[in-house]
Design a protein around this nucleic acid. Structure first.
Lengths: 153, 153
DNA sequence: CTGATATCATTTGCATACGAATGAATTTGA
DNA sequence: TCAAATTCATTCGTATGCAAATGATATCAG
């Protein structure tokens, strides 16, 4: 093996790159931490509902009755996950289920009066939560961040 | 009730605000979706390890042997979560556990040779995953995004 | 030196999250 | 029209993620 080969191996070797790998610089790791922080802030303001449960109620409040599957698509949850969320909201009387008259496969979900009251009460808190989550940024930075984040999501 | 009262109620009523609330504009919801997308990209490139498992191995590769608790702090997992992650890595022979000689409360975690091989093999893939996650952004946008995201995390 | 505190790890319980398999109902296409 | 493909919902299994309680050990304060 020549000296040039050794030089080449050093330059192209995996080791230097591997030593330079730092988890805290990876977008996935920071994304996970930012999400964790948001969920934590959410819990300090709304302690009787999780973010996914809130999302389900907010979406139903926005669009009205829909199928469980369609709701899942709108709030980015797969069928198995949305079922659990809806089950728990139903157990608490915040949503009610009914069968679709025409398409017998579908399970319709809608807010109960209690669910409507709950989401109307919580939406102002959700605005506070959003504000607190973005608090480390200036208004301009927050706008930029949301724009770029949306491109990634 | 006077006409002025009605006007006042309309302007100050909750309904307009509530109707304006859209889940897809909330930072928490978008953050959750961006995280989901990243995890999905991760899984297409690394199908035998989860992001938290990868994080544990990468951190151990970076800093060497440490206590389970300390590792949890470094990779942003609480004690209960990190235990499960380490248990599964141990079951696969990627990490090994030992007792701290002095402080008998501590459980030391370290990479096995197999774990070291695995993380060295995976780090290049992790770089690809980061790249793919950030692909919707230009290089400049990605830099801005990472800077702002880090301020939030 | 010792009782109060704090730290480390474990366990339990609950709530996402998703892949894969299944069954029922609907839609498609040759 | 009718078999194949698709859609909707459910179930199971596995893996985070966190709060709260517990037990063992270590540290601190008086």
């Amino acid at each position: 093996m020549s000296g040039e080969d050794n030089l080449l191996r050093l330059v192209e070797a995996d080791e230097p790159d591997e030593n330079n790998y730092h988890l805290q610089d990876q977008v996935g790791f920071i994304l996970r931490k930012a999400h964790q922080r948001h969920v934590s802030i959410f819990a300090t303001h709304i302690d009787d509902l999780t973010p996914p449960q809130f999302a389900a109620l907010a979406k139903l409040y926005d669009i009205g009755e829909t199928s469980q599957n369609q709701l899942g698509t709108l709030i980015a949850m797969d069928a198995a996950t949305v079922k659990g969320v809806i089950d728990r909201l139903k157990a608490r009387g915040l949503v009610e289920l009914s069968k679709h008259e025409v398409d017998k496969r579908r399970l319709l979900v809608n807010l109960t009066p209690e669910g409507r009251e709950a989401i109307e009460r919580l939406i102002p808190l959700a605005r506070t939560i959003t504000g607190e989550t973005l608090a480390p940024l200036t208004a301009k930075e927050a706008a930029t961040f949301l724009r770029l984040l949306a491109k990634l999501a």
